[in-house]
Design a protein around this nucleic acid. Structure first.
Length: 272
DNA sequence: AAATTCCACAACCGCATCTAA
DNA sequence: ATTAGATGCGGTTGTGGAATT
């Protein structure tokens, strides 16, 4: 038997929000701040579940939210972060200013996933992500000798090779991962800890193995071997690990090398 | 023009995690 | 240490509009 629903559904409004409800919620949150979602509807005069109010605020009413027009650079970053993190939409959203996890998730499911499938790419699921909680319990990756499988067909897409970087505790701890992983609230401490755990493990490994550079390749963590879904050649070509011939057009704008999104991505790679 | 299918997005649901008592 | 309530997250569904037949 599951636990009781978060709130009684009796008499509560459901479905799309009306402008009047939006205004009530916005006014209340602006006056009283976020939080206390459970008691908020009553105080704000809304006939909605607290969860519903929170979702509406986070995904729609919150100031600074960008809607629609996901740029190619953003799509590129979403794809790259998804390959690193799996379906950790809140983490991914935290790296895309103004975008919500729900929007990114929708965009992924409705467009990017199809595009990748069309290109013969099998995107990883959350259970195989590097930071996934499940990954340590249910390893899904086989140990690899870092060689490409024979059936591997490479396709090309331009991407920028992250520079091998030296992991040091200061940079690891002082980077923005924690603050960003916290997302819109101060609550995602577990995500932050996961990120730091990964960094700590890599740092320890680097110390013991006398290797100071962590390069863009597979590595081991928690007795599991992780390998990227793709490899980046010296010519900045992505070589996708895939069974089928495919033509994925992930052409990044060369100019974007210096743009914010790439920096954001590099920041993640530093952590991994 | 009407019916059907497709698509994008908002919202819901259940579970996991956090926190305070 | 335990427990219950609150919150956050990700998967899924419902719905309205656009596109197609």
């Amino acid at each position: 038997m599951g636990r009781a629903p978060c709130c009684s559904k009796v008499g509560l409004q459901r479905g799309p929000w009306s402008p009047k409800e939006d205004k009530l919620l916005t006014d209340y949150v602006q006056a009283n701040g976020e939080g206390q979602w459970r008691s908020l509807p009553k105080k704000a005069g809304l006939l909605r579940c607290g969860k519903s109010c929170r979702l509406r605020w986070m995904n729609y009413l919150r100031p600074g939210i960008k809607r629609g027009n996901v740029t190619e650079a953003e799509e590129d970053l979403i794809i790259r972060l998804q390959s690193l993190l799996g379906n950790r939409w809140s983490l991914i959203a935290a790296r895309l200013p103004g975008r919500t996890d729900n929007e990114i998730k929708n965009h992924w499911n409705t467009r990017l996933l199809k595009r990748l499938h069309k290109g013969g790419i099998q995107p990883q699921k959350s259970s195989t992500s590097l930071l996934s909680k499940k990954s340590s319990k249910q390893p899904t990756k086989k140990k690899s000798n870092n060689k490409l499988p024979d059936h591997f067909h490479n396709t090309t897409a331009t991407m920028y090779r992250p520079k091998p970087i030296k992991i040091c505790s200061e940079s690891a701890k002082s980077n923005s991962f924690g603050s960003v992983a916290s997302g819109s609230t101060n609550k995602s401490s577990s995500n932050q800890e996961e990120g730091e755990e990964v960094v700590d493990k890599l740092e320890e490994e680097a110390k013991t193995s006398q290797v100071s550079d962590i390069s863009w390749s597979s590595f081991e963590l928690d007795d599991q071997s992780y390998e990227p879904r793709f490899e980046i050649s010296d010519e900045n070509q992505i070589l996708f690990y895939d069974d089928d011939d495919c033509d994925l057009s992930l052409q990044a704008d060369p100019v974007s090398d210096s743009n914010l999104l790439d920096k954001v991505y590099d920041e993640y790679l530093r952590l991994l």
